[in-house]
Structures are given as structure tokens and as C-alpha cells.
């Protein structure tokens, strides 16, 4: 029987994640998948898994797991304290857990989301080709609860690389997000000025669906005030600007269509930066492209 991971304590929220299920947006299915994909990819590399093997996304850490059978894991994302079998161990490198050993993931120093990969990948039933939990549509496994037991699969392809810990990237105090204007920047009086001027505050209500940036609402052109937009397709990183309210940036579990104009779209590499920006922290926007 393959090894398993028993969830002793989930922390604020723990979900199974991988590269998601793109290709179904025309059926109303969000892409889902890891919000900080480079962090999940690194964790998988550190244990010899193929990119996109299923792991865990741990919101603000504070998770305890027990190995049932020996397993090798790696924890990535922001710097975070780890204890394995009672000993302090490093994040961002492979950690071997003997049968029965407990892994305690602390609260990350900065950032929001911690990733855990296990050699072989997690084996959970796939929905539309993905193991990811989708909080909008309910596809994929439910968010983990204390007592869940997760099967470990056979997905490993490479030996565990012999490297020591790789440096964790520490989220900057002020996150900088690059935005390309459009598709509906022409609804706004000064899209560049209204995006780049304010020091935006990351709203505490953010989740896997989207993050609100608190600050002044981008001003509409007079002829667009009171206008409604027929629903149109949305992408990850879309900066939606509802009338009179602050913008919302869509993340992986976003609705596939929306009816508020999108003033701009985040550069793909910066989606992970926003996903790791602490509630209450400041972000600045630069317009590119």
C-alpha cells in the first residue's frame, strides 16, 4: 500500500492544488490551480515530481500532517518554519519523514500561501483532468478538514535532487504589479493615471476567486457612467472595475464571464506576486505594454 498523509490540523485553509483545468471556460468552468504556480513547481522539482503533480496550498501555514509510511516532502512559498519529527528543518528543500513522523508548518514570515509537494504527488480523484479544489464551482476535492487522509501516488519521475535548500523569495514590502491596459480601458477617463497613482491596499476579503484592491475607484468617462456591459469572458489577472467601487483582480477560481469592465490585465508573472501580498499591505501598479 502506498504511503499516505494524515491531516492533523489544516490551518486557516488547505486545498489540493495542481496546474488546474484550463480549456473548459466555455462551459463555465474556472481554470483553478495553484495561485503561486512557481512555488508549487519548485516544491515538485525538489522532490523529483513532474511539474503539475498535485500538492497542497496552505493559506497562512499553521498546518500539521503525519506521515503514514515514509514520505519525502518539500515546502515552498514564503520563508516558513518547519518541524519534522520534533526537529527544526528547512523549507525549500526535500525533507524525509519516516512512518509516523509529524510535520508542522508554521506561519509564514511574509506572504500568504505556502505550498507542499510530496514525492509521488497526491493521489485524489480528478475532475476534468485536475485534482485542484475550485472554491467557486465546487469542483475537485473539498477544502481539507482535520482528519482527512491523502493517498500518495506514483508520479515521481526523477530522483530527489541532492541540493540543499534553495533561497526562498521574500515578498517585497510593497508589491509591484505590472498591468496591460484593456480590454475596456476606453470606459475610463484616465486609466493609466487612476491605476498608477494610488497606493492600493490589499483587502482582507481576498480569496482564491479574487482580491479587491482598496483605493479610489477608477473614474469612468462621462458617457460610460451608468452603462452596463453585457457579460464577457474573463482571464486570470483581469482587473475589473465595478462602478463606484474599488477594482477586483481575478485569481484562478474566477467566474469565467463577468459584467464589469476590465480596465487592464496583470502580467502573468505578477499574479503570484498578488496572491502572496498580505491583506492590508500596499501594492503599486505600473502600466506596461
Amino acid at each position: 500500500m502506498n504511503a499516505r498523509l494524515e491531516v492533523l490540523a489544516t490551518g486557516p485553509q488547505a486545498v489540493v492544488t495542481d496546474h488546474g483545468r484550463p480549456g473548459h471556460a466555455h462551459l463555465g468552468v474556472p481554470p483553478s490551480g495553484a495561485l503561486d504556480r512557481p512555488a508549487l513547481d519548485l516544491a515538485n522539482r525538489l522532490v523529483g515530481n513532474p511539474a503539475g503533480a498535485a500538492g497542497l496550498e496552505l493559506l497562512l501555514g499553521r498546518t500539521r500532517l503525519r506521515a503514514r509510511g515514509a514520505v519525502t516532502v518539500a515546502v515552498t512559498g514564503p520563508p516558513v518554519t518547519l518541524r519534522a519529527g520534533g526537529r527544526a528543518v528547512s523549507s525549500h528543500c526535500a525533507v524525509r519523514l519516516p512512518d509516523g513522523a509529524e510535520l508542522t508548518v508554521g506561519a509564514p514570515d511574509g506572504g500568504v500561501r505556502v505550498y507542499l509537494a510530496v514525492r509521488g504527488g497526491l493521489e485524489v480523484p480528478l475532475a476534468l483532468g485536475s485534482a485542484s479544489t475550485d472554491l467557486l464551482s465546487g469542483l475537485g476535492p473539498h477544502p481539507l478538514v482535520d482528519g482527512d487522509v491523502l493517498a500518495v501516488g506514483d508520479a515521481a519521475v526523477d530522483p530527489v535532487p541532492p541540493s540543499g535548500p534553495v533561497p526562498a523569495s521574500v515578498p517585497a514590502g510593497v508589491a509591484r504589479l505590472r498591468v496591460r491596459l484593456g480590454p475596456r480601458d476606453d470606459w475610463f477617463a484616465d486609466p493609466t493615471g487612476d491605476l498608477t497613482g494610488p497606493a492600493w491596499s490589499v483587502s482582507p476579503t481576498g480569496n482564491r476567486i479574487g482580491v479587491r484592491l482598496d483605493g479610489p475607484a477608477p473614474r469612468r468617462r462621462p458617457e460610460r457612467e451608468g452603462s452596463e456591459l453585457p457579460s464577457e469572458g474573463m482571464v486570470v489577472g483581469a482587473v475589473q472595475a465595478p462602478p463606484g467601487g474599488p477594482p477586483v483582480v481575478f485569481l484562478a477560481d474566477h467566474p469565467t464571464t463577468g459584467g464589469y469592465p476590465v480596465i487592464g490585465v496583470l502580467e502573468p508573472d505578477d499574479v503570484a506576486v498578488l496572491a502572496q501580498a498580505r491583506p492590508g499591505s500596499t501594492v503599486r501598479i505600473a502600466v506596461v505594454g
Binding site: G23, A25, H26, P230, E232, M234, T257
Partner: peptide
């Protein structure tokens, strides 16, 4: 092309 999303008056191509 990974996504092709028709909507009311638009088609999104990703």
C-alpha cells in the same frame, strides 16, 4: 488556443 469563450457580444481567445 487554450480557451475560446463566446459571450453576449464577444469571443475571448486565450
Amino acid at each position: 488556443v487554450v480557451e475560446l469563450v463566446p459571450a453576449a457580444r464577444t469571443v475571448l481567445v486565450q
